[in-house]
Each structure stands twice: as C-alpha cells, then as structure tokens.
Amino acid sequence: MLKLSLKQGEYLNIGDNIRVVYAGGAGNHIRLLVDAPRDVNIARNKTETNPERRKDTYYAEPGISREAQAEIKKILWNERMKAEAKRDAEKMKE
C-alpha cells in the first residue's frame, strides 16, 4: 500500500491513462478528481467488501526494492521540476 501526502492541485498518475488530482478538502472530507478512460470502472464504496483487506486485518505488502524507490524519486523530482518551470513561466508572463 502506498500512502501519499498531496497539496491542492498535485496529482498522481496510475499507469499511462489515469490521473487522480487532489482538489482540496477540510476536516474528514477531501475532493479528488479522477481523469480516466470511460471503459475504466471507478466505484466509490464506504466499506471494504473483502474482509481480508479491511484495516483491522490488513497486513502490509513487502517493501519495494531500492532500485524502484530510486526510480520513483527520479520521476517525482522530474514532475516537480516541470511544475516549477511552468509556474516560473506563468510568473514571467504577468
């Protein structure tokens, strides 16, 4: 399981064609925007139907390799640099 902390407007990509954007929130409520192809089934559910995946019986998955962690860091750094360059370009236009 991956746990992320996102700021408003930040996003994560799942595969090549799904993007989840954190649109903000307050308290126990958050807003997510999901951009996915129409053929992808997206369902909202309040309870986990599989008892083995419930929080009280969840067992953490094995850790990922150092190589995968390094690749993730590189991807995140590249995305951060792109976002900063975009912000800088927008400021220059003002």
Rank of each mutant, 00 (worst) to 15 (best):
L4V: 13
S5W: 12
Q8C: 03
G9T: 03
Y11K: 04
Y11P: 00
Y11T: 02
L12D: 03
N13W: 06
N13G: 08
I14V: 09
G15F: 00
G15Q: 01
G15P: 00
D16R: 11
D16H: 06
N17H: 11
N17C: 10
R19P: 04
V20M: 00
V20L: 04
Y22R: 00
A23F: 06
G24H: 00
G25D: 06
N28D: 05
I30L: 09
I30N: 10
R31K: 15
L32S: 05
L33H: 14
L33I: 14
A36V: 03
P37F: 04
R38S: 05
R38P: 01
R38G: 01
D39A: 12
N41P: 07
I42L: 12
A43V: 13
A43F: 13
R44K: 15
N45S: 12
N45Y: 12
K46M: 13
K46C: 11
K46L: 14
E48M: 15
T49M: 13
N50D: 07
N50E: 04
P51M: 03
P51D: 03
E52V: 07
R53T: 14
R53L: 15
R54I: 04
R54W: 06
R54E: 09
R54D: 05
K55E: 08
D56V: 08
D56Y: 08
D56L: 09
Y58I: 04
Y59A: 13
A60S: 08
A60H: 05
E61K: 15
P62E: 02
P62T: 00
G63E: 08
G63A: 10
E67Q: 15
A70H: 06
E71I: 10
I72K: 02
K73W: 07
K74F: 04
L76Y: 05
W77E: 14
N78H: 08
E79A: 05
